[in-house]
Structures are given as structure tokens and as C-alpha cells.
Computed example of a mutant assay.
Amino acid sequence: MSGGVDSAVAAARMLDAGHEVVGVHLALAQSAATLRESARGCCTIEDAGDARRVADRLGIPFYVWDMAERFREDVVEDFVSEYAAGRTPNPCLRCNEKIKFAALLDKALALGFDAVATGHYAQVVEVTDPAVPGGLRRELRRAVDPAKDQSYVLGVLDADQLARSFFPLGDSTKPQIREEAAARGFSVAKKPDSHDICFIADGDTRGWLAGRLGERPGPIVDVDGTVLGEHGGAHGYTVGQRRGLGLKVPAADGSPRYVVSTDTRTNTVVVGPEELLGVDVIEGDHLRWCGPVPVGEQRVGAQVRAHGQEIPATALVEGGDGIPGRVRVHLDERVRGVAPGQSVVLYAGTRVVGSATIAATGSRGAAVD
């Protein structure tokens, strides 16, 4: 229970469904603020208090579990090291993989609980599958509300984690959840949503990274190597970025420039025209499957951002027999601003097939970088 409206209603619905429910708030900040400084922040003392008041109203036990150190190691430090290596990570996927459905679930199981329920907008559906023990398999599917669907950030869950997960909000829209919270008398019914990235409350990712990695001035160059300006550290830029470049030399045709690549080894940021951003081939590693592993070439939908468009594609899983797995995804159309470190989540209709961390991108007929 984060202290927000979604997890409050999720707890209430699980209770209504006849489950024995215990509320748990995760203390993820090592120095939690007393009050929220913005809608981006979370895990404050205020949030813990809001969660406790909901639990009291529901009449369920409530605990605060300190996972700040684990969150720091598995999410925050991973985020820093990925940017330092020139990649663009998604900390929400890492938090779901390492904290909410690993550390939290492991502790819950050790204490005798059966499953974890959260306020994510997604659906779990049981389907008949004679190949699995018991003949039933749980599938992760998109939420009914496309505007709030969070199946993308849950694409890192494997079949075992999915078997012990509940998402009771997946059949509702956000306005319906707020109306239900108000009807139940929850004080959080109108509380603003928190936004990514939760541990960077002011939203200044580049400034936050500079505080961790330091200022490292280096050149901003065009694709021919001509120096156009200077930056404070290549780790503060990501593919597709347009704003904040501070270029003093305009393009010959006056068109805007975008970051097309970064190299943290040489501390160089390369910019170019918009047409250089499009890719239609993605290679991914760190494969995570929500169910059966795809065999051979499979037609899928591919999504590379939490609220991005799903693109028709063909995926082929490579590796196995001791060889680290990779997936190669051929998109039916080019997509802009795809960077290594981001995640690609694969769908079969509304079902989440699995996910991979993007290792390289390119175009058909050209080398993949």
C-alpha cells in the first residue's frame, strides 16, 4: 500500500473477494521526507500515514517494511550505473522485478502469505493448459483502460511470480477507481498520482545524475564529427532528446537536431536530423518470459515505452543450451528514439509474452549497433 488511491482500492477489493488481507507499505527512501514536495515523489512519511489510515478504515493489519537498502542497490544504483555506461534504464521495471515481486514476494511467502496484490492496472487471467501442473496457467494481459494500462512495466514478471500476483484494478478505469475510493470514504480519493522517476522528486534527471556522477564536460558533435557545442556529461543525454542541448551553431537548413547516440567512453554526444532516429530492428537480452518461451519466429506486438504505441513485429528468440538468450525483433515500421537500456515488451493480442532489455538497435539491411 503506497498511500495512493490505487493500492487503497486494490486492498479493499481483495478484502471484498474474501481474502485475508494485510497491508504493507514499503519504506524505500533512506531519508523519507515528511511531506511530498511534488506529485512525482513517493514513499514519504505522509504516504505511509495515508496508507495506514486506509488500512484502519478497512480493519486490516498494517506494517511498514524497510527495503530502502535493497531498493538502493537494485534500483537506484542500477539506474546510475546504466546511465554511466551510456544506456537509458527504466527503474519502474527494475523495481517490479527486484523489489515488489521478488524481495517483497519472497518475504511474504517466508511469513506464510500466499500472494502479493498491487494497484497496477493490468489483468491476470487463468487459461487451460494441459502442459502445466494442475492444467491451468495464469496469463498477464493489458488492463481494460488503455490510458492507464501498466502491463508494460510488469513485463519483467516470470511465470512463478505471476502465479502469486493479483491486480484487482485491471477491469476498471481511473475515474471509476476514484469514485469507488470516495464512496468507501478513503481520504486519498483525490490524491494526485505519483510519476516516474519516484526517487528524483523534482524530475531533473540530468541534475540528479550530475550530483552522482559529477560534471564531465565534453563535445557535442554532428554525424561528421564537427563540434557544435559542449555538454556537462554524456551520461545526462539519451537518444531522441531535443531539448537542453544548448547548441550555438544552427543546422544549415534550420531543422532541429536530436541526440542520435552517446558514447560515455569518449564522453561524446552525437546529434543529427530527425530521420536518423528511426530504427526497425531491436536486439534484446536479459529475457523475462511471463509464460511459455516463444519458439521460432513469432508475430508479436512490440512496445518500447510505458505509454508508447504497440508496433506489429516479428520476434525470434536465439540462444539456449547454456548460451545466453537474446531476442531479435523486426518492427513493421520504424520507431524513433529507441535507446540501449530501455525495455521492449512483447504482446500476443492483449497477452504479455515477455520482455527484454534493449542491447542494440539498427535498420534492416544495415549493421545493428
Rank of each mutant, 00 (worst) to 15 (best):
K191H: 07
E126F: 03
I200D: 12
I358A: 06
S363V: 14
A108D: 07
A48T: 06
P324H: 14
V54C: 09
Q303L: 06
T266W: 02
E69P: 02
V269Y: 14
I177Y: 09
T118K: 13
L104I: 03
V80A: 12
A102K: 14
P133I: 00
S194I: 01
V352F: 03
I311G: 13
R137E: 13
N267K: 05
D16Q: 14
S38W: 01
V221G: 11
L316A: 05
A84L: 00
P175R: 03
D47K: 10
R334L: 10
A29N: 10
L276H: 08
A147G: 11
R212N: 05
H286M: 13
D145E: 07
A32E: 15
G134I: 00
C92L: 02
Q241W: 09
D332W: 03
R351T: 15
A29C: 04
R299G: 00
A366Y: 09
H231A: 02
T262D: 06
G214V: 01
A183P: 00
G18R: 04
A163M: 14
A339T: 01
S172Q: 09
D145V: 04
V9I: 13
G170M: 02
E215P: 00
C43L: 02
T357E: 15
A367P: 01
Y237P: 02
G134Y: 01
L169Y: 04
A51T: 04
C42R: 08
T350C: 08
T361Q: 04
L15Y: 07
A147K: 13
Y347G: 11
V317M: 03
L154M: 12
H235A: 13
A159I: 05
D158T: 02
E20K: 14
H19G: 08
F186K: 09
G244I: 04
R206V: 10
A103G: 06
N90R: 05
R94G: 07
F113E: 06
R212Q: 15
A163Q: 08
A48Q: 13
H19S: 13
P168D: 11
A85F: 07
T268Y: 06
G155V: 00
D129Y: 11
A10K: 12
G170R: 00
A252I: 01
V304H: 11
L136R: 15
Y347E: 08
R216V: 07
I200G: 10
E77D: 14
A201D: 11
S151T: 05
D285H: 07
V270P: 05
D114H: 15
G185F: 08
D204Q: 10
A33N: 10
V24W: 07
A348H: 10
V21P: 12
V269T: 09
E82V: 01
K191N: 10
H25I: 00
V64M: 13
E297W: 08
V329G: 12
A359I: 00
D202G: 09
L213R: 08
H307I: 02
T314V: 12
H286F: 12
L28P: 03
P175Y: 02
S31D: 15
R216T: 05
L316S: 06
A17Y: 03
L277A: 13
E126H: 04
F62E: 09
